[in-house]
Amino acid sequence: MPMEHPVRIDGPPTAAPELAAIRLIALLPQGWKADLIGCSGPTAAIILTVPDGMEPSGVNATVDEILSHSALRGWTRAPRTT
Rank of each mutant, 00 (worst) to 15 (best):
I22P: 00
D64P: 00
D35F: 01
A34M: 11
R73L: 08
L27I: 00
G58C: 02
P56F: 01
D64E: 14
K33S: 15
G41R: 02
V59C: 10
I22H: 13
E55K: 13
V50I: 12
A26F: 01
T62A: 12
W75F: 14
R77S: 03
A61H: 06
S40N: 12
T43A: 07
P56E: 05
L48W: 11
G38V: 07
I46D: 08
A45H: 12
A71R: 15
S40T: 12
I47H: 13
K33M: 12
I22D: 15
G31V: 03
T62P: 00
V59W: 04
S40E: 15
V59R: 06
L36H: 08
I22S: 14
S68R: 14
L67D: 08
L72A: 10
I66H: 05
I66G: 06
T49C: 10
A21F: 01
H69A: 15
A20G: 04
S70F: 10
A61D: 13
A16L: 04
L67V: 05
L28P: 10
C39I: 11
D35M: 09
A20V: 06
S57Q: 12
H69R: 09
V59H: 02
L19Q: 14
R23I: 05
P29G: 03
E18L: 09
E55T: 07
P42M: 00
E55G: 01
A21Y: 03
I47F: 06
E65Y: 04
K33E: 15
V50P: 06
W32M: 11
D52M: 06
E55Q: 14
L28H: 10
L28G: 11
E65M: 04
C39P: 02
I37V: 15
P17M: 00
E18G: 13
A21G: 03
E55P: 03
T43N: 02
L67K: 03
A71L: 13
I46G: 08
A45T: 14
V63S: 07
A21D: 03
G41F: 02
A61Q: 12
P17C: 01
A34L: 08
I47E: 13
T43L: 02
A61V: 00
L24F: 04
I25Q: 09
I25L: 01
L28V: 09
V59S: 06
G58I: 00
K33H: 14
D52L: 06
A44F: 07
D64K: 08
C39V: 15
L27W: 02
L19I: 13
I22M: 11
L48P: 11
G31Q: 11
L28T: 12
S68H: 12
L36W: 02
S57W: 09
D64V: 01
W75H: 09
A21H: 03
W75G: 08
L28C: 10
G31P: 11
I22T: 14
L24E: 05
E55M: 09
S70W: 11
L36K: 10
P51R: 08
R23G: 00
L67H: 04
G74L: 03
P17H: 01
V63M: 07
W75Y: 13
G38S: 07
